[in-house]
Write a protein that binds this DNA or RNA. Structure first.
Lengths: 113, 113
DNA sequence: AAACGTAGTATCGAAAAATATACCTTAAGC
DNA sequence: GCTTAAGGTATATTTTTCGATACTACGTTT
């Protein structure tokens, strides 16, 4: 009854069209400013980028540093707490890679979705 | 560029209002027939239950055993392959539990969502 | 004084996904 | 001819997500 009840919490902060991409960018890139992120993610709108970053910030995964300059500069990075999430991401990734292979074994080369 | 690219695969088979609950039931309970599952999950409709079970079956997480009887009997269980997913679920759960505590540290006792 | 650049916000609405509702089937047993 | 178990199907509704557009603020540059 009480095992695995909260794994949805981990899901919550990862789902969505953009959160994974944003996370990947910041993990591989270190600190990035808003416009860099936007340029590096094709088709994302400011609104989506802002929205997703705020959610990640709320969860203490992403740090937002505002520089009081004109024109404004805002830099984003993964927090220390966020870094501690990488083993989980790695585990999920490993499982995913393996699962894709598993599906191909089961269903052959047809597109596996 | 190529690290953590597939962790969305793991997400995919877990998201949804019902998949986690169904998984939990089957993990804790072993084999269950359709009607047992339905009774044990308040408010789920047949259609939703069927739909989710089929998806889990496609991913080889859940096994579906049909007994050719009248009235029909169909039993569901976690496959061996599905069992091998439990460490990941456990890891996600642990992270989730910890994260909830982390949020409460940050934001206090107000409802944390 | 008008335009520029950055990092947004605000609002509306379309599109997509998730979920619900209602009704149909099958074949044995009472 | 009604019930039962495990669905199927078709339609409807709700919810969530995503996108398009316009607008703001502020100092600097032209």
């Amino acid at each position: 009854m009480n095992t695995y009840c909260k794994f949805e919490t981990a899901l919550d902060i990862l789902i969505g069209k953009w959160k994974p991409v944003i996370l990947l960018r910041l993990l591989n890139h270190g600190t990035m400013r808003f416009s860099e992120l936007q340029k590096s993610i094709p088709d994302i709108t400011k609104k989506m980028l802002t929205q997703q970053l705020r959610e990640l910030e709320y969860h203490d995964i992403v740090h937002r540093e505002v520089y009081k300059e004109i024109p404004p500069r805002v830099e984003y990075s993964i927090t220390d707490y966020g870094q501690r999430m990488t083993p989980l991401l790695q585990a999920m990734n490993d499982w995913g890679v393996n699962h894709i292979a598993h599906l191909q074994e089961l269903y052959g080369e047809e597109q596996v979705e």
